[in-house]
Computed example of a mutant assay.
Amino acid sequence: MRLLVPFAPDQPKTRLSPVLTPEERADFARVMCEDVLAAVRAVGHEPELLSTKPLDIDAPVTVDDRPLTDAVNAVLAATSEPVAVVMADLALATPGSLDRLLTMEGDVVLAPGRGGGTNAFVARHPEFRVDYHGASYLDHREAATAVGADVSVVDSHRLATDVDEPADLVEVLVHDDGRCRHWLREHGFRIERGNGRVNVTRVDG
Rank of each mutant, 00 (worst) to 15 (best):
V5C: 11
V151Y: 09
R179G: 07
F128S: 08
P6N: 03
Y132K: 03
M1T: 09
D89I: 05
C33I: 01
T118A: 14
M32Q: 14
R179M: 08
D35A: 15
G116W: 07
P22N: 08
E46A: 14
A160D: 03
D162A: 15
V83G: 09
R41P: 01
V43M: 02
A59W: 02
R66N: 05
V203W: 11
V122D: 07
P22R: 10
H133C: 09
A39T: 01
F189L: 08
A111F: 06
L138S: 14
A93Y: 10
A88P: 02
E142L: 13
V85Y: 09
E127W: 12
P6M: 06
E24F: 07
F121W: 14
G117F: 08
L20E: 02
E46P: 03
T14I: 05
G196I: 12
G96T: 13
A59R: 02
L68W: 09
D176F: 04
D35C: 13
D58W: 07
A78T: 11
E48P: 01
V36W: 00
M1A: 13
L4F: 13
D27N: 09
M1E: 04
R124W: 07
G134W: 06
F189Y: 10
L110H: 10
D89L: 10
A78G: 11
A111S: 14
I191H: 08
V31Q: 01
T201N: 10
T14E: 09
A146H: 11
A29H: 09
L169V: 11
R179W: 06
F128V: 10
G205Y: 08
A146E: 11
A91H: 06
E186A: 15
V19F: 06
P60C: 03
G134K: 12
R41G: 01
V61M: 02
V72E: 07
A111K: 03
E34N: 03
R129Q: 12
H157T: 13
P18D: 00
P82Q: 05
V172K: 06
G113F: 09
Q11N: 15
G196L: 10
K53Q: 12
E46G: 08
R124D: 06
E48D: 01
D131F: 05
M87T: 09
R179S: 13
A8V: 13
V36D: 00
N73A: 07
A59C: 01
V172N: 05
E165H: 12
M32W: 02
V170C: 04
D131N: 14
R114I: 11
A111Y: 05
D162R: 15
R124C: 09
G44H: 02
H182C: 10
H157W: 11
L90C: 04
A143P: 01
D27C: 01
V31R: 00
A8N: 12
P166W: 10
G117V: 07
P82N: 01
R30K: 13
K13P: 00
D164P: 01
Y132Q: 05
D168A: 11
D139T: 15
T161I: 12
